Simulated assay, not measured.
Amino acid sequence: MTTHVQLLRKLFEFIRSERVDEIAKETGFINRNRLMKASDFLSILFHVPGDLASCSIQDLCTKLLTEQDILISRAAVDKK
C-alpha cells in the first residue's frame, strides 16, 4: 500500500467522506449533487503517482472509471 493511500485512509478516519462533501458545498467547490463527490475527487488525487501536474485529465478520468466506477467527461474533471 502506498504512502498516499495510507494518508488518505488516515484523513478519512478523522474526517468522514460525508464531512468532506459538506465542506466542499460550504466552500463552493461543489454547488450541486453530481456524479463525482468532493471525497471522490480527493481520493483520486491521492492515487496519482508522482506529480499531479504531469497527469493528464484523461488519466484522471480513466482512474475515476477504473478505481471508483465513475464515468465522467474530461470537461467535468477539468472544471474541478
Rank of each mutant, 00 (worst) to 15 (best):
M1C: 07
T2S: 14
T3N: 11
T3M: 05
V5E: 11
V5T: 13
L8N: 08
R9E: 14
R9W: 09
R9P: 02
K10D: 04
L11Y: 15
L11A: 11
L11D: 12
F12H: 10
F12A: 05
E13G: 02
E13Q: 11
F14T: 06
I15T: 12
I15K: 10
R16S: 10
E18D: 08
R19F: 01
R19N: 00
R19I: 02
V20C: 05
D21M: 03
E22M: 02
I23V: 15
A24V: 03
E26M: 12
E26G: 03
E26R: 15
G28T: 07
I30W: 00
I30K: 00
N31T: 03
N31A: 01
R32I: 03
R32Q: 06
R32Y: 02
N33E: 03
R34I: 00
R34H: 01
L35R: 09
L35D: 06
M36T: 03
A38I: 00
A38E: 01
A38M: 01
D40S: 09
F41N: 05
L42Y: 08
L42Q: 08
I44Y: 08
L45C: 15
F46K: 08
H47C: 13
H47R: 15
P49C: 13
P49I: 15
P49E: 15
D51T: 11
L52R: 13
A53M: 10
A53P: 00
A53V: 12
S54N: 12
S54F: 08
S56R: 05
I57F: 08
Q58A: 14
Q58L: 05
D59T: 12
L60W: 06
L60F: 05
L60T: 10
C61P: 09
C61D: 10
T62G: 07
T62L: 11
K63S: 14
L64F: 11
L65H: 14
T66F: 11
T66H: 11
E67H: 14
Q68H: 13
Q68I: 09
Q68S: 07
I72R: 09
I72V: 15
I72F: 08
S73D: 06
S73K: 02
R74A: 15
R74F: 04
A75D: 13
K79F: 06
K79H: 10
K79A: 11
K80S: 07
